[in-house]
Amino acid sequence: MRSLIVIMMGAVLVNNYVLSQFLGICSFLGVSKKQDQATGMSLAVIFVMLLATAVTWPIQTFLLDPNKLGYLQTIVFILVIAALVQLVEIVMKRYTPALHTALGVYLPLITTNCAVLGVAIDNIDASYTFLESMVNSLGCGLGYFLAMVLFSGVRSRMEDAKPPKSFEGLPLTLIAAAIVSVSFFGFAGIIENLFG
């Protein structure tokens, strides 16, 4: 139980996927302009991360490893994730139209989101058990959610700012991201001090 909490805290705060591992930056910069879009995207990411881990972990452990096919990991994982996202979208559209309207538009974007493939590979590299992998994925997803929601709040405040002309748009966004990232720095020693 304790190790699960450590994994969770580590994934959400210390090794935040967006702000300290730099995964999923494209969507972090692209979809964070409005709070509702940021929330929708993050929920979709959490959902797909959990689903992808639930599928890729058994594939790696029961299919690739026993047959010494570990080198096919990258190809198999990306295909499985892409197919999974399509499938989920079709099922969602058919059975839960309300959820589809809320999350549907973000789903196709997630196939090429490196955070999802990243968490699937990360779980294997860290040789987590199935339960630990699921907790780690949930943590990474929540970390992404936290970063997105925080940053969309920061960005809405930036709307009225009048920066020098060459800093308008993306440069200003990146520098704001740097400052948000500094704030996550404060969590660096939290695991050692709480559980060490």
């Binding site: 702000l19 060459s166 800093f167 993306l170 990146l174 740097a178 720095f185």
Partner: peptide, 18 residues
Amino acid sequence: QPPGGFFVYGLLIAIVNK
């Protein structure tokens, strides 16, 4: 550290803009 990455990238794009 990670914040520096965002910061330097933002500066470089601003320089290209300029």
